Simulated scan of single mutants.
Amino acid sequence: MTTNAIHSVLAMMKVTAQKAAGNVVTLSAPTTAGAGFISELNSSIKQINGMQVNAQRKAEKFELGMPGIALNDVIVEMQKASLALHFGIQINNKLINAYQEVMNMAV
C-alpha cells in the first residue's frame, strides 16, 4: 500500500472525528480520496495474490525439474509471498482497529 493511500485513510478518520466532535468540516475532493483508497486496496490485494501465484508456479516448475529454476529462487519467491501476505494481514488488522476506534468515539 502506498503512502498516499495511508494518508487518505488518516484524513478520512480525522474528518470523521471532527464531525463526531461537532466541528464543521469541508473537503476539497471527498470522492477521490475514497475511490483512491479502494483502488489502492484492490491493487495491493491483487499484487499479493500475484506474488503467491508466482511463487506457486516457480515451485511447480522446480518440482518438475525444469532447467533454470534453482531451489534458492523458489525459497526466495515463497518468502516474498509470505511476507507480503503477513504485511497485508497486519494492514487489515490496523484498519479494523482504526474503524472500531472511530465507531467507539463518543458523539
Rank of each mutant, 00 (worst) to 15 (best):
Met1Ser: 11
Met1Arg: 14
Thr2Phe: 08
Thr3Trp: 15
Ile6Val: 09
Val9Gln: 08
Val9Trp: 06
Leu10Gln: 00
Leu10Ser: 02
Met12Phe: 08
Met12Glu: 11
Lys14Pro: 07
Lys14Ala: 01
Val15Arg: 07
Ala17Leu: 04
Lys19Leu: 12
Ala20Lys: 11
Ala21Gly: 00
Asn23Thr: 02
Ser28Lys: 09
Thr31Met: 09
Thr31Lys: 07
Thr31Gln: 02
Thr31Ile: 14
Thr32Asp: 05
Ala35Asp: 08
Ala35Cys: 06
Gly36Gln: 05
Gly36Ala: 08
Gly36Tyr: 01
Gly36Asn: 04
Ser39Phe: 15
Ser39Lys: 11
Glu40Ile: 12
Leu41Tyr: 02
Leu41Gly: 03
Asn42Ala: 12
Ser43Ala: 11
Ser44Ile: 13
Ile45Asp: 15
Ile45Cys: 13
Lys46Leu: 10
Gln47His: 11
Asn49Glu: 10
Asn49Gln: 13
Asn49Pro: 10
Asn49Phe: 05
Gly50Tyr: 13
Met51Gly: 08
Gln52Phe: 11
Ala55His: 00
Ala55Asp: 07
Ala55Cys: 00
Glu60Ile: 07
Phe62Pro: 02
Phe62Gln: 00
Glu63Cys: 13
Leu64Phe: 03
Gly68Gln: 00
Ile69Ser: 01
Ala70Gly: 09
Ala70Cys: 11
Ala70Asp: 06
Leu71Phe: 03
Leu71Ile: 13
Leu71Glu: 02
Asn72Gly: 15
Asn72Ala: 15
Val74Lys: 01
Val76Ile: 14
Glu77Cys: 11
Gln79Thr: 10
Lys80Ala: 13
Lys80Gly: 10
Ala81Lys: 04
Ser82Cys: 07
Ala84Gln: 01
His86Met: 08
Phe87Asn: 09
Phe87Gly: 08
Gly88Met: 00
Ile89Thr: 13
Gln90Asn: 14
Ile91Val: 04
Ile91Gly: 02
Leu95Glu: 03
Ile96Arg: 11
Asn97Pro: 13
Asn97Val: 15
Ala98Cys: 02
Ala98Tyr: 05
Ala98Val: 00
Ala98Trp: 06
Tyr99Lys: 12
Glu101Arg: 09
Val102Asp: 05
Asn104Thr: 09
Asn104Leu: 04
Ala106Phe: 08
Val107Ile: 07
